[in-house]
């Protein structure tokens, strides 16, 4: 067990190392940071002094070492545009993104659980076709367009719901519906749950529960559903992080003050340190979510530990 966790932990660290190298290499390619920071007519001595102060006269591997060291101290650098520490900018916005993504996941699961289960129990029927159609649309409609259409229907024409900006609980409805229903989460869970329910419903212990004379609802929800959930939980854990990245688009549509919107604004200003910070943070969250799910499974299912 400990060996398994240690192995997975090392794997995550290696991945983080690869990502930090990528980000660092790309940062070098944006050009000399001095060009951005110094006035055009700065003297050669001044440039040299600044370069020494920032450590730019050191070999590249030393610079990378410093970069990693700063990361380990949660120092993500300074925004070129606002001159504020990136960690602070992200810290202010992160809760908004986390809340939005959590709402979206809840929304998606609330719909996907009944749909996936009913689709499997009435395989081939109208419900099944309906569930698969929902999944197909969830997979084929881009979030940003869905968001705009929803705004134009519910905010502009019907004037029922606010078109974003975080004010009160009802401002969550449209962005969360957009991200949850069209962010692949709903589609993925419906398909996965349907498939895994079909497998489980065909198993011996479900047949046995039926022979015992249990009502079909009890068999479906108490015996089959719980076991069918196992692959779904992995998927949801994995997708939580992916949705955080996907929320860039939804936050832009709804002017949502989260880290995605922060990244979008940074693109407009070519504010590299900010995007770099968001990329590193979201990657870390994705990896951490995967790791937690994997470790939980190793506890639940010994086959994974020794497999």
């Amino acid at each position: 067990m400990q060996r398994y966790i240690a192995g997975r932990l090392i794997q995550c660290l290696v991945t983080l190392l690869v990502i930090s190298l990528l980000v660092f290499a790309l940062a070098r390619l944006t050009g000399n940071p001095l060009d951005v920071m110094m006035p055009v007519d700065a003297s050669a001595e001044l440039q040299e002094e600044m370069s020494r102060e920032l450590g730019l006269d050191q070999p590249v591997y030393v610079q990378y070492g410093r970069f990693v060291q700063q990361l380990l101290h949660a120092d993500l650098g300074t925004s070129i545009r606002t001159r504020k520490p990136v960690a602070e900018l992200i810290g202010q916005r992160l809760p908004n993104t986390l809340k939005l993504v959590s709402f979206s996941v809840a929304m998606a699961l609330l719909l996907a659980f009944p749909l996936g289960v009913i689709a499997a129990t009435r395989k081939g029927g109208l419900w099944d076709v309906g569930a698969r159609t929902v999944a197909l649309f969830g997979q084929s409609v881009p979030t940003f367009w869905a968001g705009i259409v929803l705004i134009s229907i519910f905010a502009v024409n019907l004037d029922l719901l606010p078109a974003g900006r975080k004010e009160g609980i009802e401002s969550y409805v449209l962005p969360a519906v957009t991200l949850g229903l069209f962010g692949f989460m709903l589609a993925g869970v419906v398909r996965l749950l349907r498939g895994s329910m079909l497998d489980v419903l065909d198993s011996e212990y479900v047949k046995f529960a039926r022979i015992k004379g249990l009502a079909e609802t009890a068999v479906t929800w108490k015996h089959a559903f719980r076991n069918a959930l196992i692959p779904v939980v992995t998927f949801v854990g994995f997708y939580f992080g992916i949705l955080m990245a996907g929320s860039v688009v939804v936050e832009t549509v709804f002017a949502w003050p989260g880290i995605g919107r922060l990244a979008f604004e940074a693109v407009q200003w070519r504010d590299y340190p900010v995007i770099q910070g968001v990329v590193l943070l979201v990657s870390t969250i994705i990896l951490a979510a995967n790791l937690v799910v994997d470790i939980l499974y190793a506890y639940i299912d010994p086959r994974i530990r020794y497999g």
């Binding site: 991945t15 992080g241 504010d271 990657s283």
Partner: peptide, 23 residues
Amino acid sequence: MRATDAMLSLPIILIALLFAVVF
């Protein structure tokens, strides 16, 4: 396979934004 795992856990949209800013 390690490289594959690393790639699959990258936030693609964000990486693409990074590239767009750089290049």
